[in-house]
């Protein structure tokens, strides 16, 4: 299911009400010009899975935070913002979860520069 990022929160809230109340994973795929942010939701009672895709432009990457709906989104959003440089709107910025990087080249983007010395990358 593909939706716009502006409608993401309403859509997820609606789905949560209809039984998809278990957020399994938030992840993203970098297709160079755009990113697909993927929300995997699970309806445990009926054993149904739903995947919500949000396509966002690579140079204006932001999605709204869904932490108010699912507490599980907390660390996934932090991971997402750290690994893909996606701004999460609606929650305070926190320390990096997994690694340190320069803030310009998020590690899981395809544009990531390989072979950067750690000290330089950390600056």
């Amino acid at each position: 299911m593909k939706i716009e990022r502006e409608h993401l929160k309403e859509k997820l809230a609606e789905m949560k009400k209809s039984g998809f109340d278990y957020l399994e994973k938030i992840t993203a795929v970098d297709y160079s010009d755009h990113l697909d942010v993927i929300y995997m939701l699970e309806n445990i009672e009926e054993s149904k899975e739903e995947i919500v895709e949000v396509t966002i432009p690579a140079n204006d990457a932001w999605v709204p935070s869904v932490m108010k709906l699912f507490l599980a989104a907390d660390w996934y959003e932090r991971e997402l913002s750290e690994m893909f440089g996606v701004n999460i709107i609606g929650r305070s910025a926190e320390r990096l979860l997994l690694e340190k990087w320069d803030g310009k080249s998020p590690p899981l983007r395809k544009s990531f520069q390989w072979g950067m010395p750690y000290e330089e990358g950390a600056k």
């Binding site: 994973k25 992840t27 993203a28 795929v29 970098d30 993927i38 995997m40 660390w75 996934y76 899981l108």
Partner: peptide, 28 residues
Amino acid sequence: GECIMYLVADAQKPYRLSIRSPSFINLA
């Protein structure tokens, strides 16, 4: 716990592999 492998495949190698690791979310 449940592990989800989200694999976007090129012809011969993964284009993107996203792993939902169970310990990560349990620690959260």
